[in-house]
Each structure stands twice: as structure tokens, then as C-alpha cells.
């Protein structure tokens, strides 16, 4: 069974009395271990797709399962549990909690898993060390550079050992050198066997993945493997 399965998924919004077809019949499968980029210009529906894949939203119509969970008919609490255990998020603007230090930020998803304080701290420290921020672990996000923040965010995404990591323009707020380093981390994660899905409009980012899905006007326009072209 594929990790992500979308069949004729539609997402409509009504904005000012007008129906907007953000996604208009998308079918897609992602297998475990894939390294995927979703690209498209703004307004193409790639953000909407990202939100659906990230279980932040549910489709208007169509079938959709993630890691075997029927997302299309899930309750908000079930969606929260999937986001918590099966998915790790890395955002363009890092989205760290400003009042918590590095270790506490990394441990936040574990709070909602119900892990004990000692266990949370231990696991979070492991990951902070893994992303190379051991000497900054008691710092607040405001005391870190953008690249360091994004590494904290990656550590947080990994803390509950999810099957899929989503990156929403993860290099968008970074200079090109730092962006490369972050991108390299995603590549390493994929090499370690984790499924990675990046949403981007940057062709350089898409180029490092193994499968590019191009969205336009709410539909998949084309798919290709950048290594072969």
C-alpha cells in the first residue's frame, strides 16, 4: 500500500460568493522512501495540496489516505493525531515558539503524544545533537541564525519519528549557501529511508529530488524525474 494515495481529490473554496477550484481532480501516489518535489507558480494550488497532504485540511471530494488513515473522512482529533505521529513539518518561516529554548521547541510535538518530561528531554537532546546544535540547546530561537532555526525545525519534525517529512519552501528564507546545507539534510534524511516531500517554486530545490510533480490550475500538469532529464 502506498504511503500517500490521492484519487480524484478536489478542494473548492467559496470566496466572495465565487467558487474557487483550488484543486480540481488530483490523483497521486507516493511510495515509502520517495523524494518528491511539488512545484508550481503561486495560485496553482500547490499550497492547498500541501495542506491536504499535511492533514491540516480535508478535501471537498475524492479519496485520500495517508499511512493507511482515511483522511477524507477523519475527525479533527484524528487529523491532529496523524499530524502528530505520521508527519513532520518544516516551514519556510521556521515557526518555532519564541519563548521556548531549542530543546523545548524540539520536544513540543512529544507533549501531544503524551510522553513524560524526562523522555521528551532525552529524545529532544538526541535530535538537537544530530542536527549539530548541541552547544546552542539552551538558546531561544531569537538568538539563532536562520539556518540554525531551520535545523531546530527539522529536529522538531523528526522528534516523533514520522514516516513523512514535509518541507514547505524550507529554503525560502535562507541565503543560498545555508539553503544548500538544509537541502543536503533533507537528502540525507531521504537516504536514511524517510519519505520527503518538498513544496517549492525554486527549480534548484526541485533538482535534488527524485520526482517532480508540477501543479498548474489545480491539476497535475506533468511529472518527471530530474535525474533523467
Amino acid at each position: 500500500m502506498p504511503l500517500v494515495l490521492l484519487e480524484n481529490v478536489k478542494k473548492y473554496y467559496t470566496l466572495g460568493g465565487q467558487e474557487i477550484r483550488a484543486l480540481d481532480g488530483v490523483s497521486l501516489t507516493i511510495e515509502e522512501g520517495e523524494f518528491v518535489a511539488i512545484i508550481g507558480p503561486s495560485g496553482s494550488g500547490k499550497s492547498t495540496l500541501m495542506h491536504l497532504l499535511g492533514c491540516l485540511d480535508t478535501p471537498t471530494d475524492g479519496k485520500m489516505t495517508i499511512c493507511g488513515h482515511d483522511v477524507a473522512n477523519a475527525t479533527p482529533n484524528e487529523l491532529a493525531a496523524i499530524r502528530n505521529r505520521e508527519i513532520g513539518f518544516v516551514f519556510q518561516s521556521f515557526n518555532l515558539l519564541p519563548r521556548l529554548n531549542v530543546v523545548e521547541n524540539v520536544a513540543v510535538p512529544m507533549i501531544y503524544t503524551g510522553a513524560g518530561m524526562r523522555e521528551r528531554r532525552k529524545r529532544a537532546m538526541e535530535l538537537v545533537e544530530k542536527v549539530g546544535l548541541k552547544d546552542r540547546m539552551n538558546n531561544r530561537p531569537t538568538q539563532l541564525s536562520g539556518g540554525q532555526c531551520q535545523r531546530v525545525a527539522i529536529a522538531r519534525a523528526l522528534v516523533n519519528d514520522p514516516k513523512i517529512i514535509f518541507g514547505d519552501e524550507p529554503t525560502g528564507n535562507l541565503d543560498s549557501h545555508t539553503g544548500e546545507l538544509i537541502l543536503h539534510m533533507f537528502t540525507e534524511l531521504n537516504q536514511a529511508g524517510r519519505t520527503v516531500v518538498l513544496v517549492t517554486h525554486d527549480p534548484d530545490v526541485a533538482a535534488v529530488t527524485h520526482r517532480v510533480i508540477e501543479i498548474r490550475d489545480g491539476r497535475i500538469r506533468r511529472e518527471y524525474d530530474p535525474r533523467k532529464s
Binding site: 502528530n84 510535538p109 501531544y112
Partner: peptide, 16 residues
């Protein structure tokens, strides 16, 4: 609001 959004995104339920 943003903090709450982040917490929701990483798996907090409404009741949390």
C-alpha cells in the same frame, strides 16, 4: 495566534 497554529500543526488537538 501563530503559536497556537504551530502547536496545532505539530499535533495539538483543540482540547489541548
Amino acid at each position: 495566534v501563530r503559536e497556537i497554529g504551530i502547536r496545532l500543526a505539530v499535533g495539538a488537538r483543540a482540547r489541548d
